[in-house]
Amino acid sequence: MADDPNSMAIRQGVTDRLTALAPDRAVSVVDLGCGGGEVLGRLAEAGFRDLTGLGWRVSVPAGAARIEEVDLSRAGWAQEMVGRRFDVVVSTEVLEHLVNPYQFLVEARQLLDPDGWLVLTFPNVHNWRSIVGYALAGRFTGFFGPNWAEGHPLHDQHIFIPNHHLVRYFLGLTGFDRVTFSYLYGRSRLSGRTTMVTCRAARQ
């Protein structure tokens, strides 16, 4: 994740949300597809200590745990985490890269403690830029661009269009409730560059 204004807004937005959920910072957090560990680094700066980064190749801040060689596009990867559950699962800018986001949410749900929280971010396709882009070019801004590569399990390009209604439906199917949508780098659905979703593991 770069240091452009949108990326910085994502890091701060996730940190603010977790601070609101756990003011004492006494929660365990796993970041799925954490990449360079920028979100974890910001959480560490804010005082969170029980941090884990998970993905194929990841970097994490000092003191955080690291779990590598996990293919988030493959069904069953959460079984590799048996024996460890988390209070909060975070995943920023991953969902839109997946062929099967539903399966990803199934796996993420398995990592949560009862009453745990999931925090997701992904591009907001409901903002005016995407609406205009779709009207003029037949595709949402930032999706299916010139770098589109066929056959890659975790595509560099954005391939899943995270319509809010569909994401909410998938979350309900995979065992989440109390779903809320908010917006980063812009204050509303029409202006926000990024969508942040917060939801809780539904009681079984």
Rank of each mutant, 00 (worst) to 15 (best):
V132W: 14
L154H: 10
R84T: 08
F143M: 10
L72Y: 00
W77F: 12
R85Y: 06
R139W: 07
L171I: 04
G151T: 06
F86W: 04
L111R: 09
F104G: 00
E68D: 06
Q157C: 14
H152W: 13
T141S: 12
W148V: 15
L173D: 14
R129I: 06
T141R: 04
N127H: 13
D71V: 07
R74E: 11
D177P: 14
Q103H: 08
L120W: 05
P146V: 06
L154C: 13
G83Y: 08
Q110F: 15
P114L: 04
I159S: 01
P61K: 00
N124A: 02
Q103M: 09
P114V: 05
S73N: 02
G138Y: 05
S73V: 04
R139T: 11
I131C: 02
V99G: 03
P153Y: 04
A78I: 02
M81G: 01
L118W: 00
L166H: 10
T174S: 13
L112Q: 13
V89L: 02
H155T: 09
E68C: 05
W77A: 00
L72Q: 00
L173K: 15
G63D: 08
Q110H: 15
W148N: 15
H97P: 01
G151M: 01
A108W: 01
P146N: 07
W117D: 09
A108Y: 07
P114K: 02
L72A: 05
D113M: 10
Y169C: 07
A78W: 01
A64D: 09
R168T: 13
E93M: 07
L112C: 14
L136V: 10
V90Y: 12
V119C: 08
R168C: 09
G145F: 15
V58Q: 13
F122D: 01
L95S: 01
D87T: 08
V58H: 07
A62R: 15
A137D: 06
F160L: 05
D177T: 13
Y102H: 15
L118I: 09
V167E: 11
L72T: 00
R139M: 05
I67A: 11
I131A: 03
V106D: 11
V119A: 03
W117S: 07
Y169Q: 14
R139Q: 12
G138A: 10
I159K: 12
H97Y: 04
L120S: 12
D156Q: 12
A62G: 13
H158R: 05
D87S: 13
F104S: 00
D177F: 14
